[in-house]
Design a protein around this nucleic acid. Structure first.
Lengths: 229, 229
DNA sequence: AATTCGCTTATGTATGCACATAATTGAGTC
DNA sequence: GACTCAATTATGTGCATACATAAGCGAATT
């Protein structure tokens, strides 16, 4: 077998770890490396490209490739579908629809999604349960122009979260987690005293062309957001 | 100009969004697509591979390529150096060393890092400040066998966080965020009443072969963890 | 019917070549 | 010295080809 791009990647990582290629240093160019390692330049390119994507290297045309000083890595972000999140813990998922109404979004939400005021929208409040116990309280605004079918969706069978993931896959979005004190509504639904620290997620998602939805999720006390690199 | 892999990617994404290729459906094989789009199979391969990595497609040898049903996406997690986090907000960073001592790690930390008890380790408590105001309180255990130089590091000039990022780049790690009530120590250093909701990060990082460090970071009230996809 | 084995097929990867593109360098000019 | 512009160079990409590898499928065997 000849040298695979994985081998090249491993060798490069070894040199980075061993400080043979210290942080900030420029590494040999693709052609030289290919010659040294006995493979084609395309193979080296593939390996170095992967390392750059993983954050170990920084590459610029003509300027060459150097070892990243402060690697910016990518973390796997846990699952878009809350049902899966819960089932992955071996618990049984269920959900309850609290309120649902059509009307204009509050100005703050409009601004956050970048849509004009008075666009048709729907507000939904949902409770996510794990083994019958509250897991998260969801407050969602859906931009109906982006997902017309949502207005007629049966949200008893399938949660708005899951309906949207299946019917309006998103292109990009932002996630903002913060720690807040439970307000009266959270206190009621999450079964904790008012003021209890609660993890709050504010999420905006966008389709290829338009905004889709704005969600605030309050997780029950004890929730942990787990990421790994 | 001929068809680039980006064009192929765009076209594939278009078909996914337009439901021409609905979720779960199998898409044409690389050779057919290449013929249809007028490019080489390698070009189609590059495009589909990228889409698979981004979570839009699932590929298996011989079985072909299908549109992902519930895309698991990757979020950019901008971590490593708190100083950069603060300077990116246009604030001035400084830090203060609270305590530093060498001794055995608590059993819990040992277990979390997967090292035997009584291994040489160092405990450091640090305060991170933004414009002179507390930003985060750090409580760290460093496994000295993995980074011998740490015992002699001058942590007045450079924070342990930054020293480790520069001197012991990590291979992988786990991040666990949770919302907790400020205890007495946090209350003092983060300048908030005890019980205030506070974002807490528990992070374990590992080098290519050994564990490196275990950190608990308590962020000042108002902290938001921002991710985007 | 169950199992084994080999054929087929779709993706995965390596290679050599060509050309595109960005950006630095340096020579030439004012 | 400051500026312009072209040559140089390292990465980025496309293509044709070849072979590798996983896995589905079906025929042959038990």
């Amino acid at each position: 077998m000849s040298t695979s791009w994985q081998n090249v990647q491993d060798e490069a990582l070894r040199r980075i770890h061993s400080r043979e290629w210290p942080p900030g240093a420029q590494i040999p160019n693709e052609a030289d490396l290919a010659r040294e390692l006995g493979c084609a330049r395309a193979t080296v390119n593939r390996a170095l490209r992967a390392l750059a994507q993983a954050g170990w290297l920084e590459r610029r045309r003509r300027a060459g490739t150097r070892v990243a000083v402060a690697p910016l890595r990518q973390a796997q972000l846990a699952i878009p579908i809350i049902r899966h999140e819960i089932e992955a813990r071996g618990q049984t998922y269920s959900h309850g629809l609290l309120t649902r109404r059509t009307g204009p979004m509050p100005p703050q939400v409009c601004a956050s999604l970048g849509v004009p005021q008075d666009v048709p929208a729907q507000e939904v409040r949902t409770l996510h349960l794990a083994d019958g116990r509250t897991y998260a309280l969801e407050h969602r605004w859906v931009y109906l122009a982006a997902v017309p079918g949502f207005a007629d969706a049966n949200l008893e069978e399938i949660s708005p979260n899951e309906w949207l993931v299946l019917n309006a896959p998103f292109d990009h979005g932002t996630f903002d987690y913060s720690a807040v004190a439970a307000d009266a509504e959270m206190s009621t639904h999450l079964e904790c005293p008012a003021g209890t620290p609660v993890m709050m997620l504010e999420r905006r998602t966008f389709g290829p062309t338009t905004p889709v939805t704005h969600v605030r999720l309050a997780y029950a006390p004890g929730f942990r957001l787990h990421l790994s690199i």
